[in-house]
Design a binder for these strands. Structure first.
Length: 268
DNA sequence: CGCTAGTCCTGTCTGC
DNA sequence: TGCAGACAGGACTAGC
């Protein structure tokens, strides 16, 4: 679920807790901890030095070189509450109590997400590709990555080893805005098309962040509030609705196992 | 390399 | 109303 704009939205919400100390940690389900370089109780007393994001991972940087890393999978939420008594919602797996009285809640119904206690993030993030909003993600980079590849361009955009942060919604939206069909063999894109696509990816991700993410179903921001970008989606979730550009009914197919939305008239 | 299918899970919606 | 089946924003693996 949460793609780059959603995780970034949560990240900026949690930034308010920079400097706060962890006073207590409750784990409701031990198996959501996917890796622990140190003990959970070692978190007590550490302060939050910063809140980062890498791809779709949220990175709580702790004093003493530790990181508490969260991934939301499909249905995960991370948000803060003022009153601990209000955390009765189902599927709460981790609760972090801070010295500033805030309580951070991690919940994930489907448990596709996870939590990692990591000492050094360099190796942890080493499998991830370029940040799509970074300068390093440009026409040259994508053109090189596409060269000779036959894989469908949408499937390639979802490969986190090449570009980290794009998910199903923003892939469909970026391709629509670029006028490129999702199943085009990656290597068949012209330099001009690659350029247009890179710009569209950056633009749609930035708009998603501005709108505080897309709440298609589960997503909530760091205050457990819905995002706003769902009102700006042009194709995702709009099967059979008229294309916002040409009015023809939008199509939906399955591509690489993922639901894929596009306009057969506007995208080539 | 590229592609499909399966896996991890629960919730929600649709059609009968 | 009940129930079965499809489907869901992610990521990994096995197999061909």
């Amino acid at each position: 679920m949460p793609e780059l704009p959603e995780v970034e939205t949560i990240r900026s919400c949690l930034e308010a807790h920079q400097g706060a100390r962890i006073v207590k940690v409750e784990v409701k389900r031990a198996d959501i901890i996917r890796r622990a370089d140190f003990e959970l109780r070692d978190l007590i007393g550490l302060s939050i030095k910063g809140v980062g994001r890498r791809g779709k991972y949220l990175d709580l940087v702790l004093s003493g070189r530790g990181h508490l890393i969260l991934h939301m999978g499909m249905s995960g939420r991370v948000y803060q509450v003022e009153e601990p008594g209000q955390i009765e919602a189902p599927h709460v797996h981790l609760i972090i109590y801070l010295s500033n009285q805030a309580v951070i809640v991690y919940q994930d119904a489907r448990r596709f997400g996870g939590v990692w206690l990591v000492k050094d993030t360099r190796d942890f993030f080493s499998h991830l590709g370029v940040e799509p909003l970074a300068r390093a993600f440009n026409t040259d980079y994508l053109e090189k990555a596409l060269k000779g590849r036959k894989i469908a361009i949408k499937t390639l955009l979802l490969d986190q080893r090449l570009i980290s942060g794009i998910g199903n919604i923003y892939a469909d939206e970026a391709l629509f805005r670029s006028g490129i069909l999702p199943d085009r063999p990656s290597g068949s894109l012209s330099r001009r098309e690659v350029e247009v696509l890179v710009r569209a990816i950056k633009k749609v991700l930035r708009q998603g962040i501005e709108q505080r993410g897309t709440t298609f179903r589960d997503f909530r921001d760091g205050y457990n509030q819905m995002g706003g970008f769902q009102d700006h989606l042009k194709v995702y979730g709009r099967f059979r609705e008229p294309c916002p550009t040409c009015g023809q009914p939008l199509e939906r197919v399955r591509l690489g196992g993922r639901s894929t939305h596009y306009c057969a008239h506007c995208q080539h």
